[in-house]
């Protein structure tokens, strides 16, 4: 499929067209001073002035809370009903290349062995429209983890801004092609002259970081006891903001909410940074101090994801650095490990 064009001024038409088809339109919106992804009604709510939203759009594939079953306890026993999920179509507009790459990572966990259809059914119905970055900040490090604003992995449609206030749209997947076809009235093909594209901004790769050196160092089980872990992560107090803002973090809790007579069983986001996450009922906790919990998160990103699920654990979006209240920078740990690794 050839590149198509979309006028920024006609985004409203695209939104109406998407909404007419019954799908939700999600995009970056300013909310209480932060840019976040939200379901929107009209183009005026969208903002184009952002590096990356504070929150991820993973909540549309893996909601923060989700009912998996309902139950009622009666004298005769228990009435139990599983949820038969029929999720809406969702269009995410204005995603960034880094987090688009994260859907493959989430999928690899949720389909490891058995499929978690609460995830797969939602992901099957999502269309990701990425806009190439024309601005970056000091926290962006996608190029250090082998991605870039030009990466199309995980995007269904990849957009580049043009100097005359349009987007050049390239369908990356079949789903993207079908989307452009379905909303063909909004996209146009004809151009008088080849458009000039606004240049992509790429963060400089952090020189001291070498991914293969990190994985080699992590592979040595004795390094799990390294003094580096408590030393570099001492200031972490376990708020969990990094995990909730991370596009690849997948941990959840299963809890019952309701009364003794009935209620719901839910999947809720959880975080390996919380002290009770791994606490046994007996009181024993294998990750009883914060550095062990932080170490687990780092290992998960740079060892377990790549080795076990063959996908990337960190896409370099920099959210965990931006939201951290104590400014614990994951790239500093990556850098030190790269330096000491043989």
């Amino acid at each position: 499929m050839k590149a198509m064009y979309l006028k920024k001024a006609e985004l409203g038409k695209l939104i109406s067209s998407v909404q007419d088809s019954g799908a939700l339109f999600v995009g970056p919106v300013v909310d209480a001073g932060n840019v976040v992804y939200k379901e929107i009604g009209s183009a005026s709510e969208l903002t184009g002035d952002y590096i990356i939203p504070v929150t991820t759009y993973k909540q549309w594939v893996f909601p923060q809370t989700e009912v998996v079953a309902t139950f009622a306890v009666t004298k005769e026993g228990v009435d139990l009903d599983g949820v038969d999920l029929d999720p809406p179509d969702v269009v995410v507009f204005g995603a960034r290349a880094c987090e688009a790459a994260s859907l493959a990572s989430l999928r690899s966990v949720f389909t490891w062995g058995e499929d978690d259809e609460f995830y797969t059914r939602r992901e099957d119905r999502i269309t990701v429209i990425t806009v190439g970055c024309t601005a970056i900040d000091d926290e962006c490090f996608c190029t250090t983890v082998e991605l870039s604003p030009a990466s199309t992995t995980g995007s269904d449609i990849y957009l580049r801004e043009t100097t005359d206030d349009e987007y050049m749209a390239v369908a990356v997947t079949k789903k993207g092609e079908a989307f452009i076809k379905a909303h063909h009235g909004v996209f146009h093909q004809k151009r008088a002259a080849e458009p000039e594209l606004v240049e992509l901004k790429l963060p400089e790769p952090i020189k001291g970081i070498k991914k293969e050196k990190i994985s080699a160092w992590l592979a040595r089980t004795d390094n799990y006891q390294s003094e580096l872990w408590p030393r570099l992560t001492r200031k972490c107090f376990g708020c969990g903001a990094c995990t909730f803002s991370c596009p690849t973090c997948h941990c959840f809790d299963i809890t019952d909410e309701g009364t003794a007579f009935g209620g719901e069983r839910r999947k809720n986001w959880d975080a390996c940074q919380f002290d009770h996450f791994t606490a046994h009922a007996s009181g024993h906790n294998p990750r009883d101090t914060q550095f062990k919990r932080w170490r687990n998160r780092f290992m998960c990103k740079f060892k377990y994801y790549p080795d076990k699920f063959k996908t990337t654990g960190c896409v370099g979006c920099g959210r965990c650095i931006r939201v951290c209240p104590v400014r614990l920078d994951i790239t500093e740990v990556m850098e030190e490990i790269s330096q000491i690794s043989e």
């Binding site: 966990v109 949720f110 490891w112 062995g113 058995e114 978690d116 997948h250 941990c251 959840f252 809790d253 299963i254 959880d270 390996c272 996450f277 791994t278 606490a279 046994h280 009922a281 294998p286 998960c300």
Partner: peptide, 12 residues
């Protein structure tokens, strides 16, 4: 260990 899902998804 503490478990929630039993099927390798919940991460604990």
């Amino acid at each position: 260990n503490k478990m929630k899902c039993g099927v390798g998804k919940c991460g604990r």
